[in-house]
Amino acid sequence: MLEFSQQVINGLTLGSIYALIAIGYTMVYGIIGMINFAHGEIYMISAYIGLITITALTVQFGVENVPLILLFTLVVSILATGAYGWTIERVAYRPLRGSPRLIPLISAIGMSIFLQNYVQIGQGARDLSMQPLISGGWRFGPEAGFQIYLSYMQVLIAVVTVIFMTALTLFIARSRLGRACRACSQDLTMTNLLGIDTNRVISLTFVLGAALAAVAGVLISLYIGKINPFIGFDAGIKAFTAAVLGGIGSIPGAMLGGVILGLSESFASAYLLTEYKDVVAFSLLVLVLLFRPTGLLGKPEIEKV
């Protein structure tokens, strides 16, 4: 039972990160019906920005206040990564608006290759690593036997994820711009006719998706502490799976999909073999799609952004 709880903690941590990235996929799909394959690279860039900012603050300027470092890094990373998201949409997707669906997809793959190489040239193709900023945690359970370990970092990941997800949900549900987003996802042309600048809404979607990926990137560089220009590919595939699992186009679906994916990976390595963790995760995806082709929460008519 104790091991099981520990595996749940492990899975939830992993799942939170997947969910944060998955939202970027799902939002863009919800509004313009396109899979933004460069999204994984956005996450990778934000991990770099996070690691560089943290290193600069701690080593260069000798800042020791951890919450301050964290807050500053998050802000810098969200701003910079959001700018990347905006630029990518401007450069690679907007000129192709209205062209057949495959064209922006290819543009996205090109963007992804470009960004990977761009970071490789700028930062080198080698692993960068960093010692954990936040270490330690709580232990529960018998002194002699198996103790559950809940690290501060895991709690932080969960808390930050929940905060940003709530903020996003509120923003979509309550604000003017959020309403515009929902309108766009229902009918782009009609929304345009009603006098809403849809291009602006689409830009906003990219910025929001990038901002959440930035949060994931900062958290991962804090939690794992080792990054290279290729981490975006793997994470992107996993997050895309999570988005499809939960129902692409649905924000709660992306959250749910991420958590399910994280948990299934954890349980597969715990109770089967570590080799099978991806097999289990993707078999789950196939099974869900067989019985619910729109994903778990994918009811595009009712809930789609």
Binding site: E3, Q7, N10, K226, D234, S266, S269, A270, T274
Partner: peptide
């Protein structure tokens, strides 16, 4: 290229 090994460690 795997980065999360927490499940394996727990096991």
């Amino acid at each position: 290229g795997q980065t999360d090994f927490s499940a394996l460690c727990t096991k």
